[in-house]
Design a protein around this nucleic acid. Sequence first.
DNA 1: AAGCCAGTCAACCGCAGGGGT
DNA 2: GACCCCTGCGGTTGACTGGCT
Length: 243
Amino acid sequence: MGRAPCCDRAAVKRGPWSPEEDDALRDYMQRYGNTGSWITLPKRAGLRRCGKSCRLRWLNYLRPDIRHGGFTDEEDAVIYSLYSQLGSKWSLIASQLERRTDNDVKNHWNTKLKKRLATAAAAFSSRSSASSILPLPAPVAAAHPTPPSLLPLPVPVPVKAEAYTYDDFLAPDGALFVASAEGSTSASLSAASSGSNWSAVDNAATNEGFFADFCTAAASDLAAADQYLSGFFYPLDPTLSLV
DNA sequence: AAGCCAGTCAACCGCAGGGGT
DNA sequence: GACCCCTGCGGTTGACTGGCT
């Protein structure tokens, strides 16, 4: 037996909102706010809509304090970094971006960022002299459990302006960082405990030692490594990993 | 000009979880 | 503890749009 629907589907309008409906909801929210429940709001506002639909319309579109589209490079950097750590926690990621909604961030990721990342990964895989030993999975393919130590996130997340370079992956003594965490799915924790703070590490480490292989391969092709890394993995502020 | 196709994004759906009883 | 109600979330769908043939 299925779950009871939240409203009478035959009695409510569905699909795109008309300007008149937008006006009605906006007027109501600006006059009274949602002092009751979303379920009862349509009746109070004179709308033939499901309460959930009203909530979504208001939160994702009509609310005055949100922006649509036009994601900046810095915002992209935050999204890449947080996705690499948190997976598809869109509301959490959106909360780290000023005036962005989870739906907007999710759409932006699915339509642009994910493809950009896959294209770059494929490009690196095909041109790297060491590509034969690189499994090169799509680095963002698998969402993984959120490390408890990463939460709660500071607001807003500080982000370095520049992207990673190969040098960022060298330990202070010049050794490759990942050499000490090869194959470990908790590489990010190792990074944190050793004073590093590379969000990319955890992401890459979820892929069966991919990152260790990558660094080994990259040692013979630094230019390719730089190109691959820059623009996709960004160092975060140390406090993010060391809560 | 018409048809096709890929990209974009608003909206829907079902589930999880919190709070109240 | 069990149940119900409601909100919030993430995955998915489908309408729309613009570019290409």
